[in-house]
Amino acid sequence: MNHAATIFVGVMLTFASAWLGLVFLPYVQLGNIEPAAIEGSTDAYPKPLGGLAARGRGVYIAGGCVYCHTQQIRPEGFGADIERGWGPRRTVARDYMYDRPHLMGTNRTGPDLANIGARQPSSKWHHLHLYNPRITSPGSVMPSFRYLYEKRKITGERSRLALELPEEWKPESGYEIVPTDEALALVAYLQALDHTTPLKEAETP
């Protein structure tokens, strides 16, 4: 039997139908979202990332952080994301309106980072943790991002940015560990990850 034409048309229609549903309609529904006005202020949410944080997002992407960390809070009653303290409310489409590409992730080998900036505001903590996660979180399997840090001979005064490492992680005396520009940018990005602003489409439980 010769069904070449039928197969062609069928294959095209089935494909087009799903394209319409999974690509086109979500775009129509969510592609033109606007920032929401914050009550009692002239500010709006969300805001695009600032320069350093935007660069840090590039470092996050280059390091492949997305393979172990999600950036999405599931609603209450579905998983324990909120109970774990990962965020005060579920994340919604508006939270991601400036994300290109999206970094929602699909794996939680490590914890969710949607609100890591609010949960862990200290840049000191982030630098220690990135330099070697076992310093702040014993038992962690996160890779060390030593390559974002430089070991430098101390000439004159110690650098203002040098890491204050616990004894067992310290380099030999006369040396210090300082973050590179990339590490500074990455930490700025992590600190900017904050989706705690209340939105009316996402009830805060």
């Binding site: 062609f8 690509v23 592609g31 979202i33 309106m97 290109r100 999206h102 929602m104």
Partner: peptide, 29 residues
């Protein structure tokens, strides 16, 4: 038939002329 369509659409909408975050996730999956 399917593969080239899938591949060019996803590259266009996510890499070359990226859409906003949430619909991207749908296109991604």
């Amino acid at each position: 038939f399917w593969f080239p369509w899938l591949y060019t659409v996803v590259e266009l909408l996510m890499v070359y002329r990226p859409m906003a975050g949430s619909p991207q996730a749908s296109v991604n999956w």
